[in-house]
Amino acid sequence: MTDNSPREDDYPAMNETFDRASPFADDAGVKAGPRPDISDEEADAAFAEVVTVDGVDPVAARAALADVPWEPGAPKPDPILVADGVVRRFGGLTAVDVDHVEIQRGVITALIGPNGAGKTTLFNLLTNFDTPDAGTRVFNDKNIDNVAAHNIAGHGMVRTFQLTKALSKMTVIENMKLGATGQKGESLFRSIFPFMWRKQEKEIEERADDLLIHFKMDHMRDQFAGTLSGGQRKLLEMARALMVEPEMVMLDEPMAGVNPALTQSLLGHVTGLRDQGMTVLFVEHDMDMVQEISDWVIVMAEGQIIAEGPPASIGENTAVVDAYLGSHHDSALDLDQEL
């Protein structure tokens, strides 16, 4: 999906160049596939070891959604994240104006909506990467309005970006290790005394390696992240986010630009996360995928939440259909494809 971001325009060369310069760019499709020589069991075992959220029963959490009314701003039985009256304006444009929204703990919630609906902006507001003009956000019963963006991760919420942010000139394993929180060697003073952080570093590295095995990326461990294909970067970004040991992950279009084979494994990873008790909120344009993995769907249009409900209910919702057909400039929209 295109993102008409003004800042990106100022750096026009950067996106394309990389691919052209990278020797691996052309065979991205081939390289992006999962690594064949690891069995699924091995990978899953490695995963279960690293990713678990205690005290969450994903099955019960999903079941509880059955009683939730299908309406915008519906209250959830066990919300992990609650936003109230969140408004963000850019000049005359109101990019986000959400009265009330709750995200159920332990389930996969999809956030959909036409281009420019305000999904990314809402992500920014929920993670404090951007400050709303009004409104409050509560995560895990704690008000996070005044928490700095970098402290959000410490609260147990981590997000990825629509434009993938792999750290190009760092290796894959370095990317992963960066995700760990609480590394003592990240303080300037302790950094010059390796004995103070060596041991911890080793543990972190082991965890990172386990996750890489799960994502079947361990063979690229020492490669520069800049040499990865687009899909691999999405994977890396997700794996790196998990290094934070979050309770909730927010993925902005994790499947965009990823080839079908890899998409399937990505979807598998996402449901895998939920089954370990993690809460997932993700933005996606492809309705098939939304139908396939999400437990709950929230629809945005023109900054507002216009519908909520289980995936099956969304296609019939007239407000949603209007929003897509009404607001989209291209008249011929294939509902099956895009919604």
Binding site: F129, A149, H150, R159
Partner: peptide, 13 residues
Amino acid sequence: REDEDAARSLGKN
């Protein structure tokens, strides 16, 4: 240096 926002999302000030 590589991407400040990514670092912040991972909890680095």
